[in-house]
Simulated assay, not measured.
Amino acid sequence: MHQLLVLYPEPADRAAFEQYYRTRHLPLAARLPRVRASRFSLALDGAASPYVAVFEAEFDSAEDFAAAMASPEGQAVEADVPNYAPPGTVVLDFPVERLAGG
Protein backbone atom coordinates (compact mmCIF):
# COMPACT_ATOMS: atom_id res chain seq x y z
CA MET A 1 0.00 0.00 0.00
CA HIS A 2 1.07 3.62 -0.58
CA GLN A 3 -0.03 6.64 1.45
CA LEU A 4 -0.39 10.35 0.73
CA LEU A 5 -0.32 12.56 3.83
CA VAL A 6 -0.81 16.34 3.81
CA LEU A 7 -0.30 18.37 7.00
CA TYR A 8 -1.58 21.94 7.17
CA PRO A 9 -0.27 24.52 9.66
CA GLU A 10 -2.47 27.31 11.00
CA PRO A 11 -3.57 29.51 8.08
CA ALA A 12 -3.80 33.30 8.30
CA ASP A 13 -7.61 33.07 8.03
CA ARG A 14 -8.86 29.74 9.32
CA ALA A 15 -12.49 30.28 8.34
CA ALA A 16 -11.53 31.12 4.75
CA PHE A 17 -9.17 28.12 4.63
CA GLU A 18 -11.85 25.72 5.86
CA GLN A 19 -14.51 27.11 3.52
CA TYR A 20 -12.25 26.85 0.46
CA TYR A 21 -10.92 23.43 1.48
CA ARG A 22 -14.40 21.95 1.96
CA THR A 23 -16.08 23.52 -1.07
CA ARG A 24 -13.28 23.64 -3.65
CA HIS A 25 -10.29 21.44 -2.85
CA LEU A 26 -11.87 18.35 -1.31
CA PRO A 27 -14.29 17.92 -4.24
CA LEU A 28 -11.24 17.93 -6.55
CA ALA A 29 -9.45 15.39 -4.35
CA ALA A 30 -12.56 13.18 -4.31
CA ARG A 31 -12.18 12.74 -8.07
CA LEU A 32 -8.63 11.33 -7.89
CA PRO A 33 -8.53 7.95 -9.62
CA ARG A 34 -7.16 4.80 -7.99
CA VAL A 35 -7.75 6.01 -4.43
CA ARG A 36 -8.55 3.11 -2.15
CA ALA A 37 -9.65 5.32 0.77
CA SER A 38 -9.32 8.94 1.85
CA ARG A 39 -10.05 10.97 4.96
CA PHE A 40 -9.37 14.36 6.49
CA SER A 41 -9.69 16.32 9.71
CA LEU A 42 -9.93 20.03 10.35
CA ALA A 43 -9.93 19.48 14.11
CA LEU A 44 -6.32 18.81 15.09
CA ASP A 45 -5.37 20.25 18.46
CA GLY A 46 -3.14 23.21 17.64
CA ALA A 47 -1.78 23.30 21.20
CA ALA A 48 -0.44 19.76 20.88
CA SER A 49 0.52 19.97 17.20
CA PRO A 50 1.92 22.56 14.80
CA TYR A 51 -0.77 21.38 12.34
CA VAL A 52 -4.48 22.14 12.36
CA ALA A 53 -5.62 19.95 9.46
CA VAL A 54 -4.63 16.68 7.83
CA PHE A 55 -5.55 14.78 4.65
CA GLU A 56 -4.78 11.12 3.97
CA ALA A 57 -5.28 9.03 0.86
CA GLU A 58 -4.44 5.35 0.37
CA PHE A 59 -3.42 3.72 -2.89
CA ASP A 60 -2.67 0.09 -3.67
CA SER A 61 0.86 0.94 -4.87
CA ALA A 62 3.34 3.71 -5.62
CA GLU A 63 2.48 3.19 -9.28
CA ASP A 64 -1.21 3.84 -8.59
CA PHE A 65 -0.30 6.98 -6.64
CA ALA A 66 1.92 8.22 -9.49
CA ALA A 67 -0.79 7.50 -12.07
CA ALA A 68 -3.40 9.31 -9.97
CA MET A 69 -1.24 12.40 -9.63
CA ALA A 70 -0.35 12.37 -13.35
CA SER A 71 -4.02 12.17 -14.33
CA PRO A 72 -6.01 15.30 -15.26
CA GLU A 73 -7.71 15.06 -11.85
CA GLY A 74 -4.35 14.84 -10.08
CA GLN A 75 -3.04 17.80 -12.05
CA ALA A 76 -6.11 19.81 -10.99
CA VAL A 77 -5.53 18.90 -7.33
CA GLU A 78 -1.87 19.94 -7.49
CA ALA A 79 -2.66 23.17 -9.35
CA ASP A 80 -5.21 24.12 -6.67
CA VAL A 81 -2.86 23.78 -3.68
CA PRO A 82 -1.36 27.30 -3.97
CA ASN A 83 -4.89 28.74 -3.90
CA TYR A 84 -5.50 27.82 -0.26
CA ALA A 85 -2.60 26.01 1.44
CA PRO A 86 -0.71 28.05 4.04
CA PRO A 87 3.08 28.33 3.92
CA GLY A 88 4.65 25.36 5.66
CA THR A 89 2.16 22.82 4.34
CA VAL A 90 3.84 19.40 4.28
CA VAL A 91 3.06 16.85 1.55
CA LEU A 92 4.44 13.34 2.02
CA ASP A 93 3.95 10.10 0.13
CA PHE A 94 5.39 6.80 1.25
CA PRO A 95 4.98 3.04 1.18
CA VAL A 96 3.09 1.59 4.13
CA GLU A 97 3.97 -1.60 5.97
CA ARG A 98 1.48 -3.43 8.15
CA LEU A 99 2.32 -4.54 11.68
CA ALA A 100 1.92 -8.22 12.38
CA GLY A 101 -1.46 -8.76 13.99
CA GLY A 102 -2.63 -5.26 13.08
Rank of each mutant, 00 (worst) to 15 (best):
A76H: 06
A85W: 09
R22F: 02
E97D: 01
A57H: 02
P33C: 01
E58F: 07
D93C: 11
R22V: 05
R39D: 10
A68Y: 06
V96G: 02
L28Y: 08
F94V: 04
A48M: 12
S61I: 05
P87F: 15
D13N: 14
E58G: 01
E73G: 00
D64P: 00
S49P: 01
L7S: 12
D60Q: 07
D93T: 14
A43E: 15
A67V: 01
H2S: 05
A67H: 04
L4C: 06
A12W: 03
V96T: 13
Y8M: 10
R36F: 03
M1W: 09
A76Y: 07
A85Y: 09
G74R: 12
D60W: 07
D13I: 08
G101P: 07
A66P: 00
P11K: 15
V90H: 08
Q75I: 01
R98L: 10
R22N: 07
L5K: 15
R31I: 00
V6Y: 13
T23H: 15
A12E: 13
A66D: 03
V77R: 01
S71R: 02
S71A: 09
R24A: 07
Y21T: 07
P9S: 06
F94I: 04
L4K: 09
A70F: 04
S71I: 02
F94D: 03
D60K: 07
Y8G: 01
L5N: 11
V91D: 00
D13Q: 13
L26T: 06
S38A: 12
L28I: 12
A43S: 12
F94R: 13
G101V: 09
P87M: 15
E56T: 14
H2D: 04
R14V: 01
A79R: 12
L4V: 13
A53C: 03
P11H: 13
R39W: 12
L99C: 02
Q3P: 00
D64L: 04
P72I: 02
L26C: 01
R34V: 00
A76R: 11
S38W: 15
G46E: 14
P82H: 08
T89R: 03
G101Y: 14
A68M: 04
V52I: 15
L7A: 11
S41A: 13
Q75R: 14
